[in-house]
Design a protein around this nucleic acid. Structure first.
Length: 543
DNA sequence: CGGGTGGGCGCG
DNA sequence: AAAGCGCGCCCACCCG
């Protein structure tokens, strides 16, 4: 069963079974949706989960499954070789999908008609494309939309006092407005002393000039370029920058903006805590905003809060509530394992049985673990410097199927063609600007750059969808068994907050979800993609 | 002064 | 101006 939802003003809204059902108006949409969910467990069709789901969550209504037409439109359009148009908010009531131009405002029933038109249109185009796996991808992307809204609402348990302690330790007391913290100022002074004159260490221009004046010939002030420079300012600058970053991007102001009281009812008790998002214990929570599919590869991005770039120094403050635990799990060597699977390279698939793929492959790839790692990463990223070229040559010799797979993807990209992930997410077509660059004297550069992008896209994009399927399976299982709250998701990591006694069951659920994701993408293929759950009190202990 | 860009660096 | 992918965020700097 499929049911479309259109929210109205305030609490009211409309629902309609698809296709061809009757539109029904509800005074209290959230209550009506909860009732239908309990009775029929339909797949809900929404135009934009990020906008429409939070009010339902606020009212205590959880959706189990949905189809997000906006997220789906972007995937389908790319598969068709074009960009998705922005959704049209106002529309001619008569006809058209959400994505066609029309001038008139719509009422509830007309909006439902448009929703249905979009849904039917997407179904038709999906069939016409005939890409195996694409339907699964749309389901996973939509589930990601639900999970993202739920995680933003739930938030990551965050200990403000612990955060303040670590900031004081690192930077000194919180300064008055406009001042650097004491310890950071001391680090800035060390930079100044090393050069022998005043300058602003935040100014690239001033720092570069100071190095030139000191007779150090560098082109940039990147740490990788400075690391080979023998000058006392180098180390002082490195430490200053490291600390300055914590202060400006993840310091007191950041916490004021992104950490707040738990928005759920709190303290739902130890019984069936995952029943709906946000019913964990009260306390302060870091609440980032996720952008589902924000990267072209399908990875998520963040729109505020910087959750995907949280420095390790700050992770100490992410702490389980008393009596609760964090279960953090990350996939080890996800991308090379997926490369083995998507290429069908039998020797490499066999190697995924090992816990550490790099150690396992070392005898084939240069003898040392570090060399095997460079060989694999360079093959996936298109690296050529240092040892990389020789190690990739070794890859080609030992694992021709895997290497051929990424190199074919690179050739296609260089020529302006496109590539797809395992489930059919398609790389964006090159822009007009790229084509003109290709046909200029900088053509080789343009080709090489796009080749590296498409080469990496098939691996990073498949990793993103594997993790997305994992997230969808885990989200459902946590709910069904009332195990805990899903609180964090970072490319190849997930984190669950749960009562301490449930931690073993959560670990099992995570491992089952990983196995399920692998089966969804690769069926019975004997590839192994383990997720390592770790039960901790603080996120800092997880890695 | 406000917006856009580039450098630098945090994460995977 | 990294050699090697994908992001977001901060600051300085430049421009209108």
């Amino acid at each position: 069963m499929t049911v479309a939802i259109v929210p109205g003003r305030g609490a009211e809204g409309w629902t309609m079974p698809l296709p061809g059902g009757t539109a029904t108006r509800h005074d209290d949409l959230a209550a009506a949706v909860a009732r239908i969910e309990a009775e029929a467990a339909p797949r809900w069709v929404l135009s934009d989960t990020a906008a429409e789901y939070p009010p339902l969550l606020q009212a205590g209504t959880r959706l189990d499954r949905c189809r997000d037409l906006w997220l789906s439109e972007r995937i389908i359009s790319r598969a068709e070789g074009r960009e998705a148009p922005a959704p049209v908010v106002r529309s001619d009531p008569d006809a058209g999908t959400l994505f066609e131009r029309a001038p008139e405002p719509v009422d509830g029933p007309a909006a439902l008609t448009r929703l249905q038109a979009s849904w039917l249109d997407q179904r038709r185009r999906l069939r016409a494309l005939g890409i195996e796996g694409l339907g699964t991808l749309l389901a996973a992307e939509s589930a990601g939309g639900l999970a993202a809204a739920e995680m933003s609402r739930t938030g990551v348990p965050f200990d403000v006092a612990a955060h303040d302690r670590l900031l004081r330790e690192l930077l000194g007391p919180r300064p008055t407005k406009g001042m650097r913290p004491r310890k950071l100022q001391a680090l800035a002074d060390r930079v100044t002393d090393a050069f022998g004159h005043r300058l602003n260490p935040d100014s690239t221009k001033q720092v570069l000039a100071a190095f030139h004046a000191a007779g150090v010939d560098v082109r940039t002030t990147h740490h990788w370029e400075l690391s080979s420079v023998d000058h006392p300012a180098v180390e002082a600058l490195r430490v200053y920058r490291e600390h300055a970053r914590v202060w400006t991007a993840f310091g007191w102001n950041w916490a004021d903006t992104w950490v707040g009281a738990h928005s759920g009812p709190g303290d739902a008790g130890p019984d069936r805590v995952g029943q709906w998002p946000g019913d964990g214990p009260a306390g302060t929570r870091f609440r980032p905003v996720y952008t589902v599919g924000g990267a072209d590869t399908g990875r998520w991005a963040t729109d505020g809060g910087g959750a995907l770039q949280l420095p390790h120094a700050v992770r100490e403050a992410i702490r389980a509530e008393p009596g609760w635990k964090l279960v953090a799990a990350d996939a080890a060597q996800l991308e090379p394992r997926l490369l083995a699977a998507i290429s069908g390279d039998e020797a490499m698939i066999a190697a995924t049985a090992a816990d550490d793929l790099y150690t396992e492959l070392a005898p084939d790839l240069g003898g040392e673990r570090a060399k095997a790692k460079i060989a694999l990463i360079s093959a996936m990223y298109g690296g050529t410097s240092g040892d990389a070229a020789a190690l990739v040559a070794l890859m080609r010799e030992r694992f021709p199927a895997a290497t051929g797979c990424v190199e074919r993807a690179a050739r296609v990209g260089e020529q302006g063609g496109t590539v797809r992930t395992r489930l059919g997410r398609t790389a964006p077509a090159p822009s007009a600007k790229w084509w003109s660059e290709l046909n200029s004297d900088r053509g080789t550069r343009a080709a090489t750059r796009r080749g590296r992008f498409t080469r990496n896209f098939i691996v990073q994009g498949t990793a993103a969808e594997w993790a997305l399927v994992l997230l969808a399976l885990l989200r459902r299982r946590l709910h069904e068994e009332g195990l805990g709250e899903l609180v964090f998701y970072l490319h190849d990591e997930v984190m669950v907050h749960c009562p301490a006694e449930r931690a073993p069951a959560v670990c099992a659920a995570i491992e089952a979800a990983a196995a399920g994701a692998t089966r969804t993408l690769f069926g019975d293929m004997p590839v192994r993609i383990p997720l390592r759950p770790k039960v901790v009190d603080s996120y800092a202990e997880a890695r």
